[in-house]
């Protein structure tokens, strides 16, 4: 068990997600950076899909009631055991009675804190992930709060294991996010479509697990067309439809929002396109105000990127086997 002395800003239990219910309006949830989440688990000897803590922008302060092995991956936030600094992407021992805390965030956005044995909250609809908006899963359906006592399973990790830097991934600056244009692309003028890729956007401070909002590019201009029945008068509206994970909606044509792991599954905004699955991890590591360039790709390029990411995760498994 771990006792939460200070929860940080938004620390929640996440695993690889709750799949199969999106059509019922229940999003997949799960870690925003799934590569970092899996690496953290493998470093402490867990199954790669065990539940971990995802800490956003600020680390928690946790007191351990039993010996454990811990690894912190993802965001550059230095972990400290009773004040002694530890390395990121490397497993270290925490003894019963010791306190794990964190230094300021120096890069990235979300740290994954894996504890040997995994976070042992009840499985809800096939997952331990927290869906905060729906008060579902995780620790009592919500982010951690001071005073919480979080159950941890029985583990057998080894301290001192690290993941080579060549097997880690983080967004560059500017972050380059690859996009496959979608079925509404023809709603946008050619000029405006080109501007979307040319402009440097910036992550808005509102960006969260539900959606990543961007500002700073020129507004979308729409082609003249007859409004479909039931879509409303705003040119960014559609007759309600399904929203894929990673889709980019632009309400009012002004600020693109990339739907992420806690997103609603449908609604009435047109979508410019979809961020390729291989780049969704990177979005989870983007801080507010990160300059961002959207890069157009083809389906073949998207599939190649997915294969490359799958191969990278395979190499992480081999390196930490």
């Amino acid at each position: 068990m771990i006792k939460v002395l200070n929860p940080g800003l938004a620390t929640s239990v996440q695993d690889m997600g709750r799949h199969g219910y999106y059509h019922l309006g229940i999003p997949q949830s799960g870690g925003m950076d799934q590569l970092a989440l899996q690496a953290a688990n493998l470093l402490v000897g867990n199954a790669s899909d065990a539940a971990v803590l995802e800490a956003t922008f600020m680390g928690p302060e946790l007191e351990f009631t039993a010996d454990a092995v811990v690894a912190v991956t993802g965001a550059a936030m230095t972990p400290k055991v009773d004040g002694a600094e530890q390395a990121n992407w490397e497993s270290f021992a925490v003894k019963a009675g010791q306190v794990l805390s964190f230094d300021y965030l120096k890069g990235g956005a979300r740290a994954y804190i894996a504890i040997s044995g995994g976070i042992d909250v009840p499985v809800v609809l096939g997952s331990r992930s927290t869906y905060t908006l729906g008060a579902l899963g995780g620790f009592q359906g919500r982010p951690l709060a001071a005073g919480d006592e979080v159950p941890v399973g029985q583990g057998k990790g080894t301290a001192g294991r690290s993941l080579d830097a060549s097997l880690r991934r983080a967004p560059g600056s500017p972050a380059e996010i690859r996009v496959l244009p979608g079925i509404y692309w023809h709603w946008v003028t050619d000029k405006s479509g080109a501007q979307f890729y040319e402009d440097t956007w910036k992550v808005a401070p509102e960006a969260d697990r539900i959606g990543y909002r961007f500002r700073g590019g020129r507004p979308i201009e729409f082609t003249e067309r007859e409004r479909p029945f039931g879509a409303g008068s705003d040119p960014s509206n559609i007759v309600d439809g399904c929203y894929p994970y990673g889709s980019i909606q632009v309400p009012g044509g002004t600020e693109p929002i990339i739907l992420h792991r806690d997103a609603v599954s449908g609604g009435g905004y047109f979508m410019l396109g979809t961020v390729i699955s291989a780049d969704m991890d990177l979005i989870g590591q983007m801080q507010p105000h990160t300059p961002t360039q959207f890069v157009k790709v083809t389906m073949d390029e998207a599939l190649q990127a997915r294969a490359d990411r799958t191969a990278l995760i395979g190499r992480i498994h081999e390196a930490l086997a």
Partner: peptide, 9 residues
């Protein structure tokens, strides 16, 4: 005194 978080001050 430093900011504990990234964001808008």
């Amino acid at each position: 005194i430093v900011s504990p978080l990234p964001g808008t001050f």
